[in-house]
Design a protein around this nucleic acid. Structure first.
Length: 371
DNA sequence: TGGGGCTGACTTAGATCGTA
DNA sequence: TACGATCTAAGTCAGCCCCA
């Protein structure tokens, strides 16, 4: 996308009026658009197409560098097409569309761009451009431009912001683990746990639902022997992303000696296996999604025992993305992860709101603003 | 509805080349 | 030799999907 779109307009008054936006984009209706299936590729392609239409039209005059300030650090939460204060979204299939707005509360008045004149552009002024794709005919079926206020009024408020922590394991670090003899990289338990853990295996009947029982907590050293080393070489069936994590969890439970009825649901929550204070993760790309909890900062997980994210043991299975074979294991207390790997610098969060697909179908062949 | 997962676009850093 | 332009690799992070 042209860099000029990353510069805000000279002032909010220079933005194209929202009710004029359909006139600019109407020409795209019926135009060919083939989905690649690669989500970010499609999202990027649509953004470029929309931007091109604005380019054909006259862009709002740009602000000079000295006239404004982007308020959020690292421009997080600022719409991609800043010159028109627009974010674009691709709507494909399904019965509802899950709108995810990243790093801003959509319908709030937090300032994103602050002008020296005193004017500002706020979160609730972002225009959301939804491009509905006709999958069968590979064409743009409709373009619907909405405001956050319209979305909340018609479909309900956005859900609470959900935080996403991520950890990076570089290929270099990964290869170091692969080239080691055991293929297992591990570190001893946190000092707090070291007084409670045991090095001897004793099959017991505690459910995974139980809170950690400090008498039966296996040490990382023992977990390496009974779980980690035995996981190396096993295959994680890659039928779906979520199932793979669960497959690893089941394998781990089995190796720990817990009995799991076939088809029985796992606990969910944090950590995955509370009874062993063990969080299980699969990694075949560079990024490990830690989810809501992260040991980057110490956070109490079990108040009763004052156990924190630093004490939780992380078992990360490094797998080959093509074969699903576990080629290496990282087993370390949360407090160590940051020393070995890199946390994604800023925490990202998203606000979600589902919009029924029937809403988009209503406007097939049209380009409309807040209909 | 909240949360987790993969993926690849985008960004940044580093390397190399061309010209003055 | 210095500087800028261009190319490449590594690092970052969010879009869309799926599931409980």
């Amino acid at each position: 996308m042209d860099k000029s779109f990353k510069i805000p307009p000279k002032s909010p008054a220079y933005l194209t009026k929202a009710n004029k936006l359909p006139e600019i984009l109407i020409g795209l209706i019926g135009k060919e658009f083939k989905l690649t299936g690669k989500t970010r590729t499609d999202g990027s392609a649509i953004r470029k197409i929309i931007a091109r239409e604005f380019f054909k039209n006259e862009l709002p005059e740009r602000a000079m560098d000295t006239e404004f300030e982007i308020v959020p650090p690292r421009k997080k939460g600022v719409p991609k097409i800043l010159r028109e204060f627009i974010d674009t979204y691709v709507v494909t299939s399904g019965t509802s569309y899950n709108l995810q707005v990243w790093n801003r509360i959509p319908n709030c008045k937090t300032v994103l761009v602050k002008y020296d004149s005193g004017a500002s552009l706020k979160c609730n002024e972002v225009r959301y451009v939804f491009v509905k794709i006709d999958n069968e005919n590979n064409k743009i079926a409709s373009i619907i431009i909405l405001t956050a206020d319209y979305i909340e009024t018609h479909f309900g408020k956005f859900g609470k912001p959900t935080i996403k922590h991520q950890l990076l394991i570089s290929n270099k670090a990964r290869n170091q683990i692969y080239s080691s003899e055991s293929k297992v990289l591990y570190y001893p338990d946190s000092r707090k746990l070291s007084y409670y853990i045991t090095d001897s295996y004793d099959k017991h009947n505690n459910s995974i639902a139980n809170e950690p029982n400090l008498q039966n907590l296996y040490s990382i050293g023992l977990l390496v022997e009974i779980v980690a080393k035995k996981l190396v070489g096993r295959i994680l069936e890659s039928n779906s992303t979520k199932n793979r994590g669960q497959a690893l969890e089941r394998m781990t439970l089995e190796l720990l000696g817990y009995e799991m009825a076939i088809g029985k649901n796992l606990m969910g929550g944090f950590p995955d296996i509370p009874n062993q204070l063990l969080e299980v993760k699969v990694q075949d790309a560079q990024t490990v999604d830690l989810g809501k909890f992260s040991p980057e900062r110490e956070e109490v997980v079990f108040i009763e025992n004052n156990l924190t994210t630093f004490d939780v043991r992380y078992l990360i299975a490094l797998t080959d993305p093509k074969t699903g074979i576990i080629e290496g294991i990282v087993l370390a207390p949360g407090e160590k992860l940051g020393e070995i790997f890199t946390y994604v610098s800023d925490v990202s969060y998203k606000c979600q709101r589902s919009i029924p697909m029937s809403f988009f179908d209503l406007y097939k062949g049209q380009c409309v603003f807040n209909p």
